[in-house]
């Protein structure tokens, strides 16, 4: 499912969890987990967490700003597709040279976000790896997930 986009970002859109993880090492628990109501009013908190972790991890200014924007983009997409009163769960893991961010929210839609959308273009431009997929949730619901990796230096070409 994974393929490399024009700008070198590895992208996957599928209805199944990718079978191989793109991270080099086994994932321990996240360093920070935030569970919050899936509403746009909370986006600024999530951006603040992303920026703070990236600053502490010595990210370059551009990489901090890119991570903030990527987290905002993924979470905006999750919020707009969330069921009413759904929870948005975000996990940040600070790894050796990168921050791994994953987020999920319950949704009624089986279809992951379109790769033709402006938002997807933004995400692939901002991150080093980005995946999104839908998994079955409790009852009739489904869960939409985003998974992205941002490296410490802003090596992503404009």
């Amino acid at each position: 499912m994974a393929e490399v986009d024009v700008d070198g970002t590895e992208v996957t859109v599928s209805e199944h969890e990718p079978s191989t993880t793109t991270s080099e090492k086994p994932l321990p628990g996240p360093d920070v987990e935030v569970r919050i109501a899936a509403t746009p009013a909370h986006l600024s908190v999530l951006r603040a967490v992303a920026a703070d972790l990236a600053m502490r991890a010595d990210f370059t200014l551009d990489a901090i700003s890119d991570l903030k924007m990527a987290v905002d983009e993924a979470c905006s997409e999750l919020i707009s597709r969330s069921v009413p009163d759904g929870d948005l769960v975000c996990r940040f893991s600070v790894e050796a040279e990168q921050i791994h961010f994953s987020a999920e929210a319950p949704t009624t839609s089986l279809t992951p976000p379109s790769r033709e959308s402006f938002g997807w273009r933004v995400l692939t431009a901002l991150t080093d790896v980005v995946n999104t997929w839908v998994v079955p949730g409790p009852g009739d619901t489904h869960v939409l997930r985003f998974d992205l990796v941002k490296k410490r230096s802003d090596a992503v070409a404009l």
Binding site: K68, M69, D72, E73, S76, F118
Partner: peptide, 12 residues
């Protein structure tokens, strides 16, 4: 202080 894609979409 922050410009996300929703803001960019308004500009477009």
């Amino acid at each position: 202080s922050f410009l996300g894609s929703a803001g960019l979409a308004v500009l477009v």
